[in-house]
Amino acid sequence: MAMIQANQLAKELLYMADDEWVIGSFLAEMSGGGPFVEENVAISSIAQDEIGHAEIIYNEILDLDSAFQWESADGFVHQRPVSGFKVSALVSAKTIDWAAIIVQHYFYEAADQYRVSQLIEVVEGRTKNVLGQMAREERYHHRHWHTWLSKMSATLEGKRRIQEEIYHYWPKLAGFFHGTFLADDQTTFQSVKKELTTLGFATPEIKEGFSGRGVLSDDVKLLITRSRVLVEGMSGGKW
């Protein structure tokens, strides 16, 4: 692959950072709501990773694109116009249903892991090192949610619930890369389909997926609003 231009890279990284911040924040709110104590610890760890990734990437963007005038990652979350958030539809819905959380995060981690692996091939220097560190953590996240899929497939009720969520989230997975440098890449789509088939799940046939970037859900708008209210209540608050 040829190296990616700085302005295009900044756009791709912004998509990634927004996704990481939103899905990490929603998962953090679920801490304590998992099916057992050990899983609550895992949820908290994964959520912390995702939010940490967002902070690292936001700061990386500041070094790549002078159009952003903020001094740190905080500006992207607390000062950017709400219309400037480019969150994918896949991560935009907050849910407390465990089956939905499993499928949403499994789909996201599969797509995000591939996105990171491909970006590593078209960047160099510090950005490459940052993405390499993230890739190692994303592999753990993907394995975690794949394990849950396998566990849920072991019972009829668990399998039924997961299957319903697969149908719900599938169009959002299919549209995840719309408008990105991976727009025509079907690798993630096919690998997820293969894994689900192996576990005995059906996958729908769709021609067009739904991206949703720039069309913010009420859940995301509320998350942004609440985060800003918290910061305004702090004196010099930082991440």
Rank of each mutant, 00 (worst) to 15 (best):
S117N: 10
S117R: 13
L119W: 11
I120G: 12
I120S: 14
E121A: 09
E121F: 04
E121R: 09
V122T: 09
V123D: 15
V123W: 12
V123T: 13
E124R: 15
E124P: 13
G125S: 14
G125N: 15
R126S: 14
R126P: 11
T127P: 07
K128D: 14
K128N: 15
K128P: 15
K128M: 14
N129Y: 03
N129F: 01
N129D: 10
N129A: 10
V130A: 09
V130H: 07
V130Q: 10
V130W: 07
L131I: 07
L131F: 06
L131Q: 11
L131N: 09
G132Y: 00
G132N: 03
G132R: 04
G132V: 00
G132C: 02
Q133C: 05
M134I: 15
R136W: 07
E137T: 13
E137D: 10
R139T: 06
R139F: 11
R139N: 11
Y140I: 10
H141A: 03
H141P: 05
H141K: 08
H142F: 05
H142V: 03
H142E: 03
R143I: 04
R143E: 09
R143S: 09
H144E: 01
H144K: 02
H144T: 02
W145F: 00
W145K: 00
H146N: 02
T147Q: 09
T147L: 03
T147P: 02
W148D: 01
W148N: 03
W148C: 01
L149N: 00
L149Y: 00
L149P: 00
S150F: 00
S150Q: 01
S150P: 00
S150K: 01
K151S: 03
K151H: 03
K151A: 02
M152A: 03
M152D: 04
S153T: 02
S153R: 00
S153Q: 01
S153I: 03
S153M: 05
T155V: 08
L156T: 10
L156M: 06
E157P: 04
E157Y: 10
E157D: 06
G158W: 03
G158R: 01
K159M: 04
R160D: 07
R160C: 05
R160V: 04
R161A: 07
R161D: 05
I162N: 02
E164R: 01
E164G: 02
E165L: 07
E165K: 11
E165H: 05
E165M: 07
I166P: 06
I166V: 05
I166K: 08
I166Q: 05
I166G: 07
H168Y: 11
Y169H: 11
Y169V: 08
W170T: 09
W170N: 08
P171Q: 05
K172T: 01
K172G: 08
K172S: 06
K172N: 08
K172M: 04
K172V: 09
L173W: 04
L173T: 08
L173S: 04
A174G: 04
G175D: 14
G175Y: 12
G175Q: 10
F176V: 15
F176L: 13
F177C: 12
H178W: 12
H178V: 11
H178D: 12
T180Y: 06
F181I: 12
L182T: 14
L182N: 13
A183F: 14
D184R: 09
D184E: 10
D184L: 09
D184Y: 05
D185C: 12
D185W: 13
D185F: 13
Q186P: 07
Q186E: 14
Q186L: 12
T187D: 15
T187R: 14
